[in-house]
Design a protein around this nucleic acid. Structure first.
Length: 967
RNA sequence: GCGGGGGUAGCCAAGCCUGGUCAAAGGCGCAGGACUGAGGCUCCUGUCCCAUAGGGGUUCGUGGGUUCAAAUCCCACCCCCCGCACCA
């Protein structure tokens, strides 16, 4: 067990961050034990592979998880947020191997990017040491960034860990028992030199290339079959001849009792894919040119012709020719017809002349012979033209997606090309006239420099994800889960559909041995599916209450499945009965997992496997309840890459900016499945904002308080809206919006408040600040704790109750009044801008009472028929204000604008009341406005006797839209 | 190719599901002003084009369509990112 010692903190940028790490740790507030009086919430993130330092990409996902955990904790849930480390896999072993071989590049990356100290790097030749080293390092980072983890439950994977492998052993025995693990074979990209599968990361050339399935089609020539490899077996109805390359070596081999004629290279390849491949004899290809062979299924006799475009290193080195539908084949014929000498040498002139394309596929946009058409259209003259690749791709794709076999295709006639392909293949194999051959579509070269080929690995263990019943259960469960964002749900469903059996064992690397076949190790993605269940009991194991060897399958059967008699199990395994029952209860208390948060790259693999395994093993009510996925980090707009230096360890940004700034910058970077972009500039801005927040709190803490200010009601009302929004956003994992509103939204309200009160702070305003601190606590917990203590509060804000909306404090009247003031200020300003001169004074004319009816009219009209409201309102205005017909249109439009902007936020009555109080509202704000605008503001009501109104602006006044005169 | 996501003003990035309140939130950058010994920080104002009274014009990848009304709905197209298996 990796020790759980504290005290080794990395240097954070900020002293107060270090302080709170210690306080949290000492107070144990994040350690979670079952508490029947509280609702539980189990949240987790996938553990990270320990082959390098945690980087800001991890930071993004994990901070979302932590923010959510903190939010739920403040909401009163008993939150379990555990942590562990993934050691399983082959990559670390690869690093060790490369280091042993003296690979300077890997050494450089380890030293310079990962920051491994020079004096210990030689120990990295031991894979286990690497994972151990990073686990120790990364634990410090997890603490430093303030994740609210219950560290008592920590573990790491593989059989290097005393009890993890016991858990995996139980898991695989259970899966096997239920029939979800089967044995089979599968093709892999293989290095003949290294004698191992060559994964993407182990390749010099050919990243992303995977084996493709070709069909071998057998053309009989006496007792030998020419085995042509094709991606399009359905085209054998259009075959006119066979191509071989006369300038290369061909052999006759015996495969499964049949004699096949293929290129020498193909025979070597095939020997990796089939048992008992024997080379019987060499064949001189020149000597068989012109011979006639029999087509399978149709029995048609066709000739064997020479073609240089046939690559003997690809496929079987034998190609059957379909000139009507394959551009290469048609071009091959054209070429051959021009090579008079060669044709005569083989004495095949007669044969060649007679060959005509055969049309077998109907396809839109083309006639009977698409290959002929495209070759002619592109003016391709011979089979060496590189554009044949494009032509082939075009025809291939077109025919696959929209082609239908014609009447001359026997029982396959009228089938879609996409269906017929599979059917013809099956038929050929059934009849013993075909087989499957795997081939790499592009060259792949192993890191060792050897060219790779495809090998069929035998006796491989698979997880049977193809099982339709299993799939069905998983899909049904996906339909009922909480998935954020919603778009991910369809993705999951697609993945389940598409998933094939998964090779779940490996021969090399770190991991846990397959219990019934210990020469295999359970593969990395397959040993990390239901481990959240282990968290529920791991604290007892870490404490030594249960010894690893006591974790037998029957003990785990009881804890996780409730199978067996606890008394007997207790006696047999010498586990205290009470403890055994406690573990069962604790598992049932925490399970299921309520929320798992991860990057979207894990949707097609880990997260889906996670669902499959839970569905396979546990009772339905223990299946995962929620998943949230997020995007993947880019750095300054570019993809993360160690070799290009686009890599920022979390530790680096914590040291540079502090933990809270790092957290907040990440959270603000993206939402849903969008990819967050880390920009140093953003981090600097966020840091300033956090400092500003702390300054605000300090000022409030010192400020003399008044009992009340006129905008308190407004402030409290705004606060309620903010609480509501932030809470809703958090509930749906909209962490960016939530964090943004908590930081910037709250700040903008606070600024307006200070402006309006001329920096006077009331007791109510302190309440606003308190809630602000709480609302920020999930995102910037260190700063929030610090702020909480600056305010003189006891305890930890991390465990304070989350603010709830107090309905009685929602005050639309107050909000609308402020909105009117802002609007008036804007209007006055925009006029001042146009005037471009310093005004002496501004007079505001509030509409007279008799215009209130117009407002009401406008509200009703909009409500009832939004379509012709303008016309109606114009009519009403003309009735109401006779003699003002000229202005009616403008007035109506202005009124409608004003009203329609308010109607969605405020109730009818609120708007009317505000209009009634309009004069009062402006008069109360007159001093404020005068200061803001640096001029004298006077407020009068339209119709006041002796009103000073040189521009007749009072007449233009409408309710909620006063007339303005500037001089 | 298949599947998923996306293209919004100088940049980043909301809005799109539930059409009108959108010239379009917020942040940055830039400009002006306040504060300051000066700066930094902070605060205010402006930042598509035109306009000497709160106005008008043209914008949300491209092209069509639906609608009284479209960044928002529908169709087609172009472009970008991610995953596609034995790799964590």
């Amino acid at each position: 067990m990796v020790s759980n010692r504290g005290g080794h903190f990395i240097e954070s940028a900020l002293d107060y961050e270090k302080k709170w790490i210690v306080k949290w740790s000492e107070s144990k507030i994040f350690e979670a034990d079952p508490n029947p009086s509280k609702p539980k919430f189990f949240i987790c993130v996938p553990y990270s592979y320990q082959n390098g330092p945690l980087h800001i990409g991890h930071g993004f996902t994990f901070t979302r998880g932590d923010a959510y955990a903190r939010f739920k904790r403040m909401q009163g849930y008993n939150v379990l947020f555990p942590w562990s480390w993934h050691w399983t896999g082959e990559a670390v072993a690869g690093t060790s191997e490369r280091l042993k071989q003296g690979d300077q590049l890997i050494r450089k990356v380890l030293l310079e990017i990962d920051g491994v100290p020079n004096e210990i790097i030689d120990k990295f030749t031991d894979p286990a040491y690497i994972s151990k080293y990073y686990t120790e390092e990364n634990r410090k980072v997890v603490r430093a960034i303030g994740f609210s983890v219950d560290f008592r439950r920590e573990f790491y994977t593989t059989d290097l860990h005393p009890y993890y492998s016991k858990f995996i052993t139980w898991q695989y025995l259970t899966l096997k028992k239920k029939g979800y693990v089967t044995m089979g074979k599968h093709p892999v990209v293989w290095c003949p030199h290294c004698k191992s599968a060559t994964g993407d990361h182990d390749r010099l050339i050919g990243e992303g290339v995977s084996p493709e399935e070709y069909t071998l089609v057998y053309f009989r020539m006496d007792d030998v079959y020419l085995a042509a490899a094709t991606l399009r077996p359905e085209t054998i109805f259009g075959v006119t001849n066979i191509w071989i390359n006369p300038n290369h070596e061909y052999v006759i081999t015996e495969v499964d009792g049949k004699k096949l004629l293929i290129s020498k290279k193909a025979a070597e390849k095939l020997s990796q894919q089939k048992k008992n491949v024997k080379i019987i004899s060499q064949v001189d290809p020149k000597k068989i040119i012109g011979k006639i062979v029999e087509t399978p299924l149709t029995g048609v006799y066709i000739p064997l012709l020479p073609a240089e475009f046939v690559d003997p290193n690809f496929g079987s080195g034998v190609v059957y020719s379909v000139p009507g539908h394959a551009p290469y084949d048609y071009a091959g014929l054209l070429t051959l017809k021009k090579k008079v000498a060669e044709v005569d040498e083989y004495n095949i002139r007669n044969i060649v002349e007679k060959i005509k394309p055969i049309s077998i596929i109907k396809v839109p946009d083309y006639g009977d012979y698409p290959a002929v058409e495209i070759v002619e259209k592109m003016k391709i003259a011979d089979d060496k033209d590189p554009r044949l690749e494009d032509a082939t791709r075009e025809i291939y794709s077109k025919e696959f997606h929209s082609g239908i076999l014609k009447e001359n295709c026997r029982e396959f006639s009228n089938q879609k090309v996409s269906e017929a392909r599979e059917n013809v293949k099956q038929k050929l194999i059934e009849e013993g006239l075909g087989d499957i051959m795997w081939e790499l579509p592009e060259k792949v070269v192993c890191r060792c420099g050897t060219e790779c080929l495809v090998k069929i690995v035998e006796n491989q263990w698979f997880l049977k994800y193809s099982d339709p019943e299993w799939k069905k259960k998983v899909k049904e469960h996906i339909m009922t889960m909480k998935i954020y964002p919603e778009e991910a749900r369809q993705w999951f469903l697609n993945v389940v559909d598409w998933l094939r059996d998964w090779a779940c064992t490996r021969k090399t690397g770190l991991g846990t041995k397959l219990p019934w076949d210990p020469e295999w190790i359970v593969e990395t993605l397959s040993d990390s599916t239901i481990y959240p269940a282990l968290y529920t009991i791991s604290k007892y194991l870490n404490r030594g209450d249960v010894k690893p060897e006591q974790l037998t399958p029957e003990v785990l059967d009881y804890i996780y499945l409730g199978i067996g008699d606890p008394a007997k199990i207790s006696a047999k395994n010498k586990i205290d009965l009470k403890l055994l029952k406690t573990m069962r209860e604790e598992f049932l208390y925490w399970y299921p997992v309520d929320m798992r948060i991860s990057a979207k790259e894990l949707v097609p693999n880990h997260l889906t496997f996670y669902l499959f395994h839970h569905v396979a093993i546990f009772d339905e009510k223990l299946w995962p309840r929620g998943i949230s996925v997020n995007g993947m980090i880019t750095i300054e707009g570019e993809k993360m890459s160690k070799s290009r230096g686009k890599f920022i360890p979390l530790k680096t940004s914590i040291i540079k900016y502090g933990a809270d700034t790092t957290r907040c910058t990440l959270l603000l970077a993206a939402e849903d499945m969008d990819d967050p972009d880390w920009r140093e500039k953003n981090a600097r801005e966020v840091k300033l904002m956090i400092e500003q927040f702390l300054r605000v709190v300090e000022e409030v803490a010192k400020a003399p308080l008044v009992d009340e200010t006129p905008v308190d009601k407004w402030l409290m009302s705004r606060l309620q809206r903010r609480i509501k929004n932030i809470t809703t956003y958090m509930e749906t994992l909209k962490t960016r919006k939530a964090c943004h509103e908590a930081l910037y939204g709250m700040y903008s309200d606070w600024r307006w408040f200070l402006r309006r009160t001329n920096n006077t702070i009331s007791r109510t305003a302190v309440k606003f600040i308190e809630d602000w601190i709480k609302l920020l606590a999930p995102f910037i917990p260190f700063t929030s704790e610090e702020a909480w203590s600056i305010l003189g509060k006891e305890g930890f804000v991390s465990v304070e109750p989350w603010p709830i909306v107090l309905g009685e404090l929602i005050n639309p009247e107050a909000e609308l009044a402020e909105e009117l003031i802002m609007k008036l200020m804007d209007d006055i300003r925009s006029i001042m801008d146009v005037l471009e001169k310093k005004p002496n004074r501004v007079i505001v004319y509030v509409a007279s009472e008799n215009k209130l009816e117009l407002l009401e009219e406008a509200l009703n009209i909009i409500k009832e028929n939004e379509q012709k409201s303008l016309g109606k309102l114009i009519t009403r205005i003309m009735e109401k204000l006779p003699g003002r017909e000229k202005q009616a249109v403008a007035l109506a439009r202005a009124l409608l604008d004003t009203v329609s902007s308010l109607i969605s936020t405020y109730k009818h009555k609120t708007i009317i009341d505000a209009a009634k109080n309009e004069e009062e509202i402006y008069k109360r704000a007159a001093e404020f406005l005068s200061n803001e605008l640096s001029t004298q503001i006077q407020v009068f009501k339209e119709g006041t006797i002796g009103l000073y109104d040189p521009l007749k602006k009072a007449e233009t006044a409408l309710p909620l839209r006063p007339g303005i005169y500037i001089e």
